[in-house]
Design a protein around this nucleic acid. Structure first.
Length: 599
DNA sequence: GCCGTTTTCGGCCCGACTGTTTTCAGTCG
């Protein structure tokens, strides 16, 4: 974890403690806001504190959203390694009590009651109480039989699933539900919303938005969807259920039914992010308008009755300006439409480059495997498939010798493989076939083949595969060595993380992206949804340092080519444009770069 | 906690749904 992330986690935790102690919910949400901001911040606050010890506090306060309090806490954490206020909070609230807030349906008030009235201090305590004497729980103030059953189901659900779901599983699942609902007679629109629409690498639940001439037909179809396990709420405009997700585990799905005239406002509202919505509302407000999930309205100040007169009325919605289309709302607020992927705090309401990369722009795959190492397809099958997909360039990059389990090639076998690739390239003029290798970056930063062999390859993708739990400073040097190696073109899945499973390397990204920009070495966004590595925030940092990026599927089979869209979503979240994405280049432009990079 | 062409103090997104109440608090997104 970077320092930013560590402080962010501490502030979130502190916020939860403040909530439980009842010490002001606005203070708590202020901490949460600062935590979110730090998490998405490109620059490293530790650098600011270390490089400018005399005026670090003032420099930090320059950052929008960081005030005196947070600046002070950042300095304290970087210089001492802890936060006194957080320690003090932990003396009053056990960490295991804070964990209870992770159970859906349990908020600060309920957790406080469980803790104070029944000495329930952990999820295990809660499970035990549910098993032995659930009635005692039901007798607590503002609880009851129905609430307790809800909590029981939520606790069971939690033990079955591990939090967020990878985008690669959630998106096809959400799309399938969307198609089922689109078949309901009278349906006008059904769309995915939430973090799924924004293309985040992992999502907490699936949000669906619909409008329909016959809402009851839609509601009853939803209640009967295959895989539904538990209907959580069942109102006129909002239904919510837990589903058994494909491949085990479960996922919560929310369906909201909105009036047609509010479609755009509702889609915008439920797509988020929260920070984006707040920024949009703020912009509307400054322009004398009011934005909510029903539309963009003229703002009218309500006349106050009686004694309150003169104390300033509450703003309320006047005439509808626009509501049925997202684009129209952006335009009414003098903004170019912002695609869902960029509706995050890191992007703000900045203009969007008009050549933001799209799936259709990608014409080259620069990282793929054949049966020669651990791929499923023979060389020629793979090449033919690439042609069917309309690619003009395919790099064959089988594993190097150290990846023994993946059938990595010893030097002699690689030499023969290069010959086979070149021979095939001659035979199929419609595809530019590149002879490459995915060379292991060994733990010490050296590469898995001698330069004499590497130089014979058209393209070298260097990737870390082992020792992925190295300390950050060792990982930084290891990856820097690969980035600076004159024969390396691309660094593949640079951190080796697996979404939600393996943290992977945690190098100093600022140093890596600077070096990559200087050496003209390309960093990969590995499109496999298990990886999505570089992740969005790292890719954004790379772009602002002036790096070029590749989006590769790392294909081991035909199915893997379909994963490209996840890489593109991640790239768009970082703001990647066509010109900075080498997979969009022409065959000649690519060939020229590959050769000139080595001069 | 943060912020300021409505404010340096007093606001902070706000509506739907549920369950426990008997008019509303808590939770969620």
């Amino acid at each position: 974890m970077s320092t930013n992330q560590k402080i962010s986690a501490l502030l979130s935790h502190l916020a939860a403690g403040i909530d439980l102690l009842g010490k002001g919910s606005f203070r708590a949400s202020g901490h949460r806001r600062a935590a979110r901001l730090l998490n998405g911040l490109e620059l490293d606050v530790a650098d600011i504190v270390n490089n400018h010890p005399e005026d670090a506090q003032q420099r930090l306060e320059q950052i929008e959203g960081i005030g005196k309090g947070t600046a002070k806490r950042i300095v304290e954490y970087v210089t001492t390694g802890s936060l006194a206020e957080h320690q003090k909070m932990l003396e009053q609230v056990p960490a295991s009590v804070i964990e209870l807030l992770e159970i859906p349906g349990l908020g600060p008030a309920a957790v406080r009651t469980l803790w104070r009235e029944m000495q329930i201090e952990s999820i295990d305590d809660l499970k035990r109480q549910l098993d032995t004497d659930a009635d005692a729980l039901a007798s607590l103030p503002r609880l009851g039989k129905a609430s307790v059953e809800k909590i029981r189901r939520a606790v069971d659900f939690r033990t079955k699933t591990s939090g967020r779901i990878q985008l690669g599983r959630a998106l096809p699942f959400g799309e399938q539900l969307r198609e089922e609902l689109r078949e309901v007679p009278g349906v006008l629109q059904v769309e995915l919303a939430g973090s799924l629409r924004r293309g985040r690498d992992a999502i907490g639940d699936v949000d669906l938005l619909a409008c329909c001439a016959d809402p009851e037909a839609l509601r009853s179809r939803f209640r009967e969807l295959p895989g539904i396990a538990d209907l959580l709420s069942d109102g006129d405009s909002k239904l919510s259920a837990r589903f058994d997700a494909p491949g085990g585990g479960g996922v919560q799905v929310d369906l909201r039914i909105v009036p047609r005239e509010s479609w755009g406002a509702a889609l915008m509202y439920f797509t988020g992010s929260q920070d984006h919505n707040i920024a949009m509302r703020g912009r509307a407000s400054r322009r004398g308008m009011l934005l909510n999930e029903y539309g963009l309205f003229e703002r009218r100040v309500a006349e106050q009755q009686g004694e309150d007169e003169g104390s300033g009325g509450k703003a309320e919605a006047g005439d509808l300006v626009v509501g049925d289309s997202e684009t129209a709302i952006f335009e009414a607020l003098d903004l170019e439409p912002i695609p869902p992927e960029l509706r995050e705090e890191a992007h703000g309401l900045e203009p969007v480059p008009d050549d933001l990369v799209t799936l259709e722009d990608i014409d080259a795959e620069l990282h793929s495997h054949t049966t020669e190492s651990d791929g499923r397809l023979e060389l020629e099958e793979l090449a033919r498939h690439a042609i069917e997909l309309g690619l003009h360039t395919l790099a064959i990059t089988d594993h190097s010798q150290s990846s023994a389990l993946a059938g990595g090639l010893e030097p002699d076998r690689l030499r023969r493989h290069i010959d086979a690739i070149r021979e095939l390239d001659e035979r199929i003029p419609e595809l530019q076939l590149l002879a490459g290798s995915e060379v292991d970056i060994l733990p010490d930063g050296s590469l898995d083949y001698e330069d004499e062999l590497l130089v014979q390859l058209d393209v070298v993708v260097a990737s870390p595969h082992a020792a992925l739990d190295q300390p950050p400073d060792v990982a930084t040097e290891r990856l820097l060595a690969a980035i600076r190696h004159p024969l390396v073109h691309i660094v593949g899945h640079p951190t080796g993380r697996i979404v939600g499973r393996r943290r992977g390397l945690e190098p100093d990204m600022t140093k890596l992206v600077q070096a990559a920009a200087e050496c003209d070495t390309v960093l990969e966004i590995n499109a496999n949804p298990r990886r999505l590595d570089l992740r969005d925030s790292h890719a954004r940092a790379a772009l602002s340092a002036g790096c070029k990026l590749a989006i590769n599927t790392d294909a081991h089979s035909t199915r893997h080519f379909t994963l490209l869209r996840y890489g593109v979503l991640t790239a768009r979240r970082a703001g990647l444009t066509r010109k900075d994405c080498i997979n969009t280049w022409s065959p000649q432009q690519l060939r020229t770069w590959l050769e000139e990079k080595r001069r």
